[in-house]
């Protein structure tokens, strides 16, 4: 009885085994990469807003502190969105005829809220509190990126659980002195891990990785 398979099928079978493994691995890797891509995670995409508010102009250009508008970031879970009154503190006097500010003036005149589009949209099952993070030395830019360079705000990071956990497991990689939290251009020093470990101790930062820290 002759051989059923020609000797060349030896090579074919080896190649196909390797390529199936590679293909499946590649597919898995590709899916994970897709999941973290700007397209799926909605990062790096500026959102249309009722008023094209530029953080770049107000923060980098004018030097206004984050907390001038986000007044509750040190006290409550929400950083706080500025009221129309906050906008009008200056814009009742300057740029009073700018067409792009018409919605703000409308809101001021009618008392109706400006309806901004939420950029950082955490899932409903995640609890997040701004105040604890800024009070423990996590800078605004660590999560939000260089907002002072954004004409229109986009989401810088995925806000995925793996991203949160990376910092909750290793806070020393990202922590900074409390008085630098609102500094947009802060550069971590060369000995960040050393300084970080010291600050983690000093600020009594706990490595909270229990499920119920965020899912409560």
């Amino acid at each position: 009885m002759s051989q059923i398979f020609h000797p060349s099928t030896n090579t074919l079978s080896k190649v196909s085994i390797v390529s199936v493994v590679l293909l499946l691995g590649g597919l898995g890797y590709g899916l994970l990469a897709l999941n973290r891509s700007p397209y799926v995670a909605r990062t790096k995409i500026p959102f249309d807003q009722p008023v094209p508010f530029s953080h770049k102009h107000h923060v980098a250009g004018l030097g206004i502190d984050c907390r001038y508008c986000h007044t509750t970031v040190e006290r409550t879970a929400s950083a706080g969105m500025p009221t129309t009154e906050t906008c009008m503190s200056c814009h009742s006097m300057i740029w009073t005829n700018a067409p792009m500010l018409e919605p703000v003036r409308q809101s001021w005149a009618t008392g109706k809220s400006l309806e901004w589009t939420r950029v950082h949209d955490l899932p409903g099952f995640v609890y997040f509190n701004h105040s604890i993070h800024v009070n423990k030395g996590i800078g605004c830019a660590s999560c939000h990126g260089r907002v002072d360079q954004m004409p229109l705000v986009h989401q810088e990071n995925t806000l995925y659980m793996e991203w949160c956990l990376d910092c909750h497991r290793h806070p020393e990689k990202h922590i900074r002195p409390r008085d630098k939290v609102f500094e947009m251009a802060y550069q971590p020093p060369a000995n960040q891990l050393e300084l970080g470990a010291k600050l983690v101790k000093e600020y009594k930062v706990q490595k909270l990785t229990d499920c119920y820290t965020c899912h409560r």
């Binding site: 969105m81 899932p123 099952f125």
Partner: peptide, 11 residues
């Protein structure tokens, strides 16, 4: 459904 729960968030 779990992401967009039937409750109002701040603002």
């Amino acid at each position: 459904d779990m992401h967009d729960q039937p409750r109002f968030r701040l603002n």
